[in-house]
Amino acid sequence: MKQATATPVRNLSSRKMEISQIVLYGMTLRVAVWPGTDKKTPLLMFNGIGASLELLAPFADAMGDVEMIAFDVPGTGESSTSRIPYRLWMLSMLASRLLDKLGYGDVNVLGVSWGGAVAQQFALQNPKRCRRLVLAATSHGLLMIPGKLSVLAKFLTPRRFNDAGYRNDIAGDIYGGKARLQPGLINEFRKTSKLGYLMQQFALLGWTSLPWLPLLRQPTLILAGDDDPVIPLVNARLMTQLIPDSRLHVFNDGHLFLVSAAEEAGRIVRDFLNTADGTQDEETGR
């Protein structure tokens, strides 16, 4: 970790986890770093809409000695709310500036769900800094093949983050996969403000990567669930066709496979990233 003021935290993750409060552009961001080896390129992660760092902890635990960076988007978790509406290209700039402040250079990038759109935008704006791209349970935005309206309607407000009982009642319907049998799969969330959630929705409004996906030159791993009510699998297949150097892995799961199948997801992502770094995974020997 490059930030001297970081505080080690262990209650969210089995790995050592360092939390910092970083001030950028008048906002305070809660930033987490899971320290790793200098031999491997760090992994920057963008989270799903309304979600705080806690959601990423199981996946981070499964990533072994890969150094990882994540932050609560303005208005979520313990980050302050932006004073003005923002777009994805602005959030990409914010992330790049954050990396500069933490002392990082090149990174690999992973985005999940809403964060997958940010990851695509970051890869487009930072073609040299972003070495490899991992897109999990996400789509190309406005022109995607949508899920059922009854499912998407439950994403209009952040109620599922702020009301645990409601979240458990609807988890199977909106997340699919293992959440159908384990509605309490996600229990650790920081509350999300309505204004912060609205700003995240605005950031994505009208956005699509469809016209420029063929321009992405980063090797890309696309991860999707075969029972995802939010983002049907057909979207991942289309993105795989459009991104020149891409491959697809399908989980027998739903929207939350980074949590419910964290070990499998971690192994697949580690193998993909290790190929770029020319290193072997200690567990697989590959």
Rank of each mutant, 00 (worst) to 15 (best):
Glu282Thr: 11
Lys40Pro: 00
Leu205Met: 14
Ala236Ile: 06
Trp89His: 13
Ser14Trp: 14
Ile186Gln: 10
Lys101Pro: 06
Pro244His: 01
Leu43Met: 01
Leu185Tyr: 12
Met17Ala: 10
Ile84Arg: 10
Pro158Ala: 07
Ile268Gln: 01
Thr7Cys: 13
His140Asp: 15
Gly225Tyr: 02
Arg237Ser: 11
Gly77Tyr: 03
Asn11His: 13
Glu283Ile: 15
Arg167Glu: 15
Phe122Cys: 02
Pro214Phe: 05
Arg87Gly: 09
Ala153Thr: 09
Ala51Glu: 07
Ala262Ser: 11
Ile49Asp: 01
Met90Thr: 09
Phe189Trp: 11
Gln3Arg: 10
Leu24Asp: 00
His140Asn: 14
Leu142Lys: 07
Gly50Lys: 00
Leu29Asp: 02
Ile49Lys: 07
Thr157Lys: 06
Arg97Phe: 13
Ala171Asp: 10
Leu221Lys: 01
Ala51Tyr: 03
Trp212Ala: 09
Asn126Ser: 04
Val112Trp: 12
Ala261Met: 12
Ile174Gln: 08
Ser14Ile: 15
Val66Glu: 07
Thr192Glu: 09
Val73Ile: 14
Gly285Trp: 03
Asn235Gly: 04
Lys39Pro: 04
Val31Phe: 04
Ala70Leu: 11
Gly48His: 01
Ile49Trp: 08
Lys39Met: 08
Thr41Ala: 00
Asp65Glu: 11
Pro85Asp: 05
Phe189Glu: 09
Thr240Ala: 11
Gln280Ile: 15
Gly75Asp: 01
Ser20Glu: 09
Ser79Phe: 00
